[in-house]
Design a protein around this nucleic acid. Structure first.
Lengths: 208, 208
DNA sequence: TTGCGATATCGTACGCTGTACGATAGATTG
DNA sequence: CAATCTATCGTACAGCGTACGATATCGCAA
């Protein structure tokens, strides 16, 4: 009994992972966090909860991820990738129908992942991270530009007009998305599809 | 030394307030919280911090406010009142210049109180609270309606068209506000005023 | 003036959070 | 087989919201 050790008890570390790659483990952590975020909201996404769902000690996460901020960053990255690819897939053409498809995909993503969408735009982004956002907007911008160049715009006019129209389109989509996910659209009694159509008629990059 | 009391020490409660009315004290608490929110962001608005700034024990706040949620609710209320009154003051007419004034006031509030603006739209609102939001939108809606009725709209058409235009206007403003306060507008290099003018030209309730 | 009941104040304690530190068991290498 | 490296995670600490209860002070009746 002459041993009051500096720490009471220290239990063994046992390898519990079933994935080989370090990258895969980070991915698994992120997916688990995303599931939790979707089901219970951001406050439920605690280090302990995520680790617990993986059957792993909380501190283990720090081997793969840079703390809570890093976890958020990883979720945000996934979010933007899914949002961007979803929009790109559903707006294959530069036609009016194409804009509608892209807009619907954007709104669908926001409505199906409200917590993630909010996190994506609340989370502080480093300059590196911002490339993700730039990427999505750049894609939209290029589409508008090529469309307008077919309509006779060129040079500075083409650039300015493209930026203006793409910007309006994105601003309107984002406004609608944030209001809808926050449940603030009760004041507008119409369904979401009607709202999209309405916005398209007035702020869509072509036929404005 | 025969006294190990159930609680070690219990120090005296001393009246420290200098305000008479209960309402004034709640107001003082809210203002202190708002100052903290503005200066250091939402995570810094803790019960202990607010109470500390007032030179008061943390639990004292609970006499006047229903916990942290209640504190947030109070801040959100203040925010909407300021936002609504600011917009109303700056859009005195139903003219194009009026819309511009209202839009500018809206954006100015968001840019000057980014943390509060985010809280206002993140905070869960009970049905009672929503009247604040409804109030602001209703004001806008009525303005648009009276304007359109002068242009010959009437009946169902008047109602539908007014809702549509007021909705588009608000959605665009909110989209711009959230993107601007989140620092996500770098992709649009123009100044805020140009963006407002651009939006007004295309989504303003009249001349659309 | 005195006494007493009501009330506002707040110290303490509990269960949470993120995470720094360090001990250890298992894997890896010679 | 022995030595080293490393992933794991128990413990601990500060800070959070807040439930509870002790108490100093206030308002009011006698």
């Amino acid at each position: 009994m002459t041993k009051p050790p500096p720490t009471k008890t220290t239990r063994p570390p046992t390898r519990r992972w079933h994935q080989a790659d370090q990258e895969q483990r980070r991915e698994l952590i992120t997916q688990t966090a995303l599931k939790l975020l979707h089901q219970k909201g951001l406050p439920a996404v605690t280090m302990r909860a995520v680790a617990g769902k993986l059957g792993v000690g909380a501190m283990t996460l720090y081997t793969y991820i840079d703390g809570q901020q890093g976890l958020h960053r990883e979720m945000v990255r996934q979010g933007f990738e899914k949002l961007n690819s979803g929009c790109a897939e559903n707006s294959t053409l530069g036609t009016a129908e194409g804009w509608r498809g892209g807009a619907r995909a954007y709104l669908r993503f926001a409505m199906e992942n409200p917590n993630l969408y909010r996190l994506m735009f609340d989370h502080f982004m480093s300059d590196d991270d911002k490339d993700l956002l730039h990427g999505g907007f750049q894609h939209l911008f290029d589409r508008v530009k090529s469309r307008l160049s077919c309509e006779g715009y060129e040079g500075d006019n083409l650039d300015r007009e493209s930026r203006s129209r793409a910007g309006r389109f994105w601003i309107a989509l984002h406004g609608l998305a944030t209001l809808a996910t926050a449940g603030r659209l009760v004041v507008l009694e119409g369904g979401l599809d009607e709202l999209i159509d309405d916005l398209l008629k007035h702020v869509a990059p072509d036929r404005a």
